[in-house]
Amino acid sequence: MLEGKVKWFNSEKGFGFIEVEGQDDVFVHFSAIQGEGFKTLEEGQAVSFEIVEGNRGPQAANVTKEA
């Protein structure tokens, strides 16, 4: 699992990017966010995740919000 911070997330469109120190930003789709209820992320929020190869390159999977 990697750790990063949410760079930005558009809850209307359901996607955004996660910043990872020393690496390129990683695309995140709302469907990759773990948990119940409305799936969104806040700018600057700490998250842990895995990287998988998507249709358009690397993207986040199994995203969990850090306490």
Rank of each mutant, 00 (worst) to 15 (best):
E36C: 06
G44I: 02
A32R: 04
T40C: 06
K65Q: 11
A67P: 13
V20R: 11
M1V: 13
A46V: 13
E19R: 15
K13L: 10
V6S: 02
N62W: 11
G22Q: 09
F9I: 03
Q45Y: 07
P58L: 10
K39P: 09
S31N: 07
G4C: 02
M1E: 08
M1T: 13
K7H: 07
K7P: 00
E53G: 10
E43P: 15
S31R: 10
A67Q: 11
E3Q: 15
V26C: 05
V52G: 07
A60C: 04
S11D: 06
G57F: 05
L41W: 02
F27M: 03
F27K: 02
G22P: 03
T40G: 08
F49V: 03
A32M: 07
F9C: 02
I51H: 04
Q23S: 12
T40R: 11
L41P: 02
F27I: 03
G35L: 07
V26N: 01
P58C: 05
E53I: 14
V47T: 03
F38C: 06
I18V: 05
G54H: 08
L41Y: 02
I33P: 01
G4N: 01
E66H: 15
I51E: 03
I51Q: 05
Q59W: 09
I33F: 06
D25M: 08
Q34R: 12
N62D: 05
I51L: 13
V47F: 01
I18E: 00
K5H: 09
V52C: 04
T64C: 05
S48G: 08
K5I: 07
E36Q: 10
V26A: 04
E12I: 11
Q23E: 10
G14W: 02
G22H: 09
V20N: 06
E42Q: 12
D25V: 06
T64Y: 11
E50G: 09
V20G: 04
V63D: 01
K5T: 07
F27N: 02
E36S: 11
V20P: 03
G44N: 07
G35M: 15
L41K: 01
L2D: 04
E3R: 15
T64E: 08
A46H: 15
A46D: 08
F9H: 01
K5W: 07
R56C: 05
E3K: 15
Q34I: 14
V52Y: 10
V63T: 03
S31F: 06
I51A: 04
K65H: 09
F15S: 03
V6T: 05
E50T: 12
E50I: 09
F49E: 00
G37I: 05
S31P: 04
E66T: 15
F49C: 03
F27A: 02
D24I: 12
V28N: 00
V20Q: 08
E66N: 15
E66W: 14
E43Y: 14
V26F: 05
